[in-house]
C-alpha cells in the first residue's frame, strides 16, 4: 500500500462523510420547519392567554410564516428582533421554531411560561419590572412644538395633518411625524424629522416631559438615505432644559441606529428639545425616538 492510495482513500471517505452529513443536515433543517398544526396550536396558546398591551414576536424574527393565524393581535414581523421596543409592552409572546426554538430572554427579562406546540414552542416573557416606560416621544408627537429657523427667522410649524407636523402647507416629506422605515437592518416605527436645507435648523420640543431616571434617545438615517449619493452630514442635538445632553453628527452615508442614555434622575419634569441641522438636505431622512424610563 502506498501513501498515495491511503490519501486517496482518506479523501473518498471524507467526501462520503461530507455527503452523509449534508443529507442529515438537510433532513434536520426540513424537520425544523413547523407544520400547519404546530402553527394552529401556537396561535391557540397565544389567544387563550392574550391580554391587552401584549406583543407577539417570532423567533427567529424573520419566521412569520404562520402570522395570519394571529389576525387581530399586535405582532412584530420585522426580520430582526428589537428588544428595546418590545420592552415597552407589559408582556411579550415569543413564538419560536428551529433553529431558535429555545431563545434566551434578554438581560433583565423574566420567562413566565413555556408551552410546546408540536414543532414550535411558545414562550411568554416580561420586560424588567423596575424600569417602567414613563414617556414615549413617538406616542406624544401630537404634543410636540415643532419649529424651524433661529432668531427673527424662527417659525412655528403648526400644520397637523395625517399625524405629522409641517411648516406651512402640509408637506409630503419635509415634516415631523410617525413613520415606519428601514433603519439599521429592520423596519422601525420612529419619528421622521427630515433635515431642512442650507443649515436651517429644525427643532422639536416637548415641554413638561414626566420625570424619570433615564432619557433614551435612538437616532439614525434611513436605509434610503444612506444609499443615496446626496445631501450632507446631519448634526443631531438633544437638550434637556438648556443643557446639551446628546450631540452627534451623522455622516454622509453613515448607517446605524445609535443609542444614547442620559441620566435625568432627580430633575423633575423635563423640557426636551431635539435639533437637526444640515447644510444640504436631499435624502437626509433622519429618524429618532425619545423615551423616558423610570
Amino acid at each position: 500500500m502506498t501513501a498515495g492510495s491511503t490519501t486517496r482513500i482518506a479523501v473518498s471517505l471524507a467526501l462520503i462523510a461530507g455527503a452523509a452529513a449534508y443529507a442529515v443536515m438537510g433532513a434536520i433543517q426540513r424537520s425544523g420547519v413547523p407544520d400547519e398544526a404546530s402553527w394552529d396550536q401556537a396561535a391557540q396558546v397565544v389567544r387563550e392567554g392574550w391580554q391587552d398591551g401584549d406583543l407577539i414576536v417570532f423567533a427567529p424574527a424573520w419566521a412569520h410564516a404562520g402570522a395570519p393565524r394571529f389576525q387581530g393581535l399586535h405582532a412584530d414581523i420585522a426580520e430582526l428582533p428589537d428588544w428595546y421596543e418590545a420592552a415597552k409592552h407589559p408582556r411579550v409572546w415569543v413564538v419560536a421554531q428551529a433553529p431558535h426554538r429555545e431563545p434566551v430572554p434578554p438581560y433583565g427579562w423574566q420567562a413566565l411560561a413555556r408551552t410546546e406546540t408540536g414543532g414550535m414552542t411558545v414562550h411568554l416573557w416580561t420586560p424588567p419590572a423596575d424600569q417602567p416606560l414613563v414617556w414615549d416621544g413617538l406616542a406624544s408627537i401630537r404634543d410636540a412644538k415643532v419649529a424651524h429657523g433661529d432668531g427673527p427667522a424662527r417659525q412655528e410649524c403648526t400644520t397637523w395633518q395625517n399625524n405629522r407636523w409641517s411648516c406651512g402647507a402640509a408637506h409630503p416629506w419635509q415634516n415631523v411625524g410617525r413613520v415606519s422605515r428601514d433603519i439599521q437592518g429592520r423596519e422601525r416605527t420612529v419619528i421622521w424629522a427630515h433635515g431642512r436645507d442650507n443649515g436651517d435648523p429644525l427643532e422639536i420640543r416637548w415641554p413638561g416631559v414626566p420625570a424619570g431616571r433615564t432619557l433614551t434617545i435612538h437616532v439614525g438615517l434611513t436605509q434610503r438615505a444612506i444609499e443615496q449619493a446626496a445631501g450632507a452630514p446631519v448634526v443631531f442635538e438633544v437638550r434637556v432644559g438648556d443643557r446639551v445632553v446628546v450631540q452627534r453628527t451623522l455622516g454622509f452615508n453613515e448607517g446605524g441606529w445609535f443609542r444614547h442614555d442620559v441620566d435625568v434622575t432627580g430633575q423633575g419634569a423635563l423640557d426636551v428639545t431635539v435639533r437637526i441641522v444640515t447644510k444640504s438636505n436631499p435624502f437626509r431622512q433622519l429618524c429618532f425616538t425619545a423615551d423616558v424610563w423610570g
Partner: peptide
Amino acid sequence: ADCRDAYHAEVPSFVAAPGGVP
C-alpha cells in the same frame, strides 16, 4: 410598512413561505 399602516393590519392574511421563510 406603509401598507400595513394604511390597511390598519397587524399581520398579513396570507404568507407564502417555502421552507418557512416568507
